[in-house]
Design a protein around this nucleic acid. Sequence first.
RNA 1: GCUCCGGUGGUGUAGUCCGGUUAAGCAUCUCGCCCUCUCAAGGCGAAGACCACGGGUUCAAAUCCCGUCCGGAGCACCA
Length: 517
Amino acid sequence: MSLADQKSLLEELAPGEAITSKKKQAAEQLQLPPLEGAMQGKVVTRFPPEPNGYPHIGHAKAAIIDEEYARMYGGKLILRFDDTNPLKEKLEYYDAISGGLEWLGVKPDLVKNTSDDIKLLHSYGRRLVELDGAYVCTCSQDRIRDLRAKGLSCECRRDHATALERISKMFDGSYEQNQAIIRFKGEMADQNTAMRDPALFRILEGNHPKLGNKVRVWPTYDFAAPIEDSLDGVTHAMRTKEYELRNALYFAILDRLGLRKPTMIEFSRLEFEGVPVSKRKIKPLIEDGRIKSWDDPRLPTLAAFRRRGFVPEAIRKFVLSLGITLAETKPPFETLEAFNRKIIDPVSPRLFFVKNPVEVHINGALGKEVVLKNHPTDASLGTRKVKVTDTFYIAGDDATSLKVDDEIRLIELYNIKIIEIDESNNNRVIKAQIGGDEIRQSMPKVQWIAKNDIVEYKVMIPKELYKGEEYNTNSLEIAQGFAESFVSTLKPDARVQFVRFGFCRIDAKNQAIMTHR
RNA sequence: GCUCCGGUGGUGUAGUCCGGUUAAGCAUCUCGCCCUCUCAAGGCGAAGACCACGGGUUCAAAUCCCGUCCGGAGCACCA
């Protein structure tokens, strides 16, 4: 039955909606739920990465959700680099994150750094101490930890006058690193340990990428985040669920300072099975050279997804399909692949690559030039001309399954009949003769490379980086073979589908990376 | 250990707040058929969850209540 026939039959059986309803539901699944208390034109969200590493798929989820909501309500998205730790931030990471977002198609309406507001943050910290909402603690880290565990307070907390005296010393350079911190006056016996007088500021001697060593007193994330969100006009602040216990602190700080409170929303982290996002698991592999760079196709960095051949639209659709649940799960990588495949399929030229080539000699075949379609249905992708002779290569796997008398079709060329398989001297050579020209449904159809049209080619096939807790030593398979010479004219970043092999992105001269099947 | 958060087919989710309009929708995966000079895309269909488990409330519960179990997170002068 033709497609048109199928459709008309369906229309008969289920007049009206039948065809559209499934698609509609699938599309609805790619919509984020309404935002609590959101008003058209008034929503402000923010994506607050710390510039301490390369952006990965987890960043993409947060950034995309932040942006989608801003757009959904005609609001604003702020990209705010949460750079409050001079020991960790590096200039190259600000750029890497900006670049990653740009590739993703996430366009912030405003870009800023938390460090831009360092003076403001200082003054709010000072004010909080003056308000008796915080104090300067000079206890050792060990003692602080110990007392916190026991739910007990230290002497530093008791006397407000001491706090006032110390706060000046805090900022005038009287204290060294580790000698004093500003602590929130919470509740030392609170069941929520985040409320047991957490650190708000600490002294860090480091070279900050934006401020150098001018600043020594740095706010912690716990202090900077709520102040910045509030002052930036953020209406809906989203973060991953490991911060949940810190919500109480976030709001308590704003309360004490009398600042406006954003709505807080959390969602689960995104990570794939076997593809850890944590630097802890990736950095060692880079340092000892098992992985060469941060855009290695096995990695979950945005640079890696890009190099591997994923398109940003696919990542966005995928992220939206996950929704904003709190359930901690590892979604299937196949789903991302499916989204990507549907997007790139219509625009990927079909070309030939044969892995582990085996020679096929066709008796009496005449040399000629053939014209091959670059896409089965879209003629606008053009054609290419290939000169063939009587000798070809087919993929090793295809050759293996052949027996004498089998008839197969060389795609878009002609049928051949196997007459001899010569396995002498370790080098299999197949002899065949031209068969009929009838294209039978049941007949194997294989891609081929003409002997005089060969280019040596390599395809990297990324696999799971980790198997459980162990590095997967077979995480990168290299497929060697021949591609048609046309492939070598393609520039890096071109996308192709090697017929019956998989979708690939051209990576370098004579090298591609398999995106997925 | 304490506290908090989760638990819907193999997987990811919708539905849960306002209990009954579908005894569970969509996607992915698997399988079959159609289409096809690809093992891609597209079309159709099948299989697969009594909604973690046990009680309770109710005429009626995935949806409300209680308990249990399992999973995760936090308990940094990281974010």
